[in-house]
């Protein structure tokens, strides 16, 4: 039986006077890496904020592990990485992680583990503000990995990273999924699509495709996801 971490029915999100997500229905299963792909500004980040429970103006039914998104019981089960590196620039990598570990109530042993898993071991005591953009976003990713969350919501975690490291991170996402977590990763780079078990293609606040990369390519009769995206958009126009 497929086990769903997230179930969403009829999700609308209104920001100010504008509706940015329109009637979305979808599920996110555990044990898989689900890719949320679409151009900048299509609503990916808003959708992720809905799942984490920090988005206002939400209509529709959004449940995460059977509870309403944002419920108190979910707050230590979700690892969330915002698009901007949300870590403290004036603290070291280790100090940042120790702080967030205390907030989550997980042991200090987690700190060294997650620092290693994002390959920041040699920079653990460097102040985050002095690190490169890629290193800062890895520090931010490390925070989301504290406490072995059941759902990971990662907003463009691999942007601007070295290809070798990107490969390592995707391998880690799959390891986490194999261990039973649900992993949702957004990207505006279509070539990351092939690394996902399943894709949600998004444009202007609606899904234009939902399936495995193979299914989506086959249905659109395209060689890659970028072509499939274009074919679907042009076909709908």
């Amino acid at each position: 039986m497929m086990n769903n971490a997230v179930e969403v029915h009829g999700l609308d999100v209104v920001r100010g006077a504008k509706e940015v997500l329109h009637g979305l229905d979808f599920t996110i299963p555990v044990g898989q890496v689900t890719g949320l792909l679409g151009p900048s500004g299509c609503g990916k980040s808003t959708l992720m904020r809905v799942l984490v429970g920090v988005q206002a103006g939400v209509k529709g039914e959004v449940t995460v592990f059977g509870a309403r998104a944002g419920s108190r019981a979910l707050r230590d089960r979700i690892g969330y990485v915002t698009q901007a590196a949300s870590v403290y620039d004036d603290l070291s990598v280790r100090e940042n992680l120790r702080f967030f570990a205390k907030v989550l109530g997980v042991g200090a042993d987690h700190v060294d583990r997650v620092i290693e898993s994002v390959d920041l071991g040699s920079h653990a005591d460097a102040v985050v503000g002095n690190l490169s953009g890629g290193q800062r976003s890895r520090a931010s990713l490390a925070v989301a990995l504290l406490g072995t969350p059941d759902l990971l919501v990662l907003d463009e975690p691999t942007v601007g990273l070295d290809p070798v490291l990107r490969e390592d991170l995707w391998a880690m996402f799959h390891r986490l999924a194999d261990d039973g977590a649900a992993v949702l990763v957004s990207s505006h780079v279509m070539d990351e699509a092939e690394r996902c078990d399943r894709l949600l293609l998004m444009r202007d606040g609606v899904f234009i495709a939902d399936g495995t990369p193979d299914e989506i390519r086959a249905k659109a009769g395209a060689d890659d996801i970028e072509q499939a995206f274009l074919t679907i958009v042009r076909g709908a126009a």
Binding site: R49, V52, G53, V54, R72, R75, D76, I78, Y80, T82, S86, F100, V103, L104, G105, V143
Partner: peptide, 8 residues
């Protein structure tokens, strides 16, 4: 935002 998504 990150803190408020945690048990804070």
């Amino acid at each position: 935002e990150r803190l408020l998504s945690m048990p804070m």
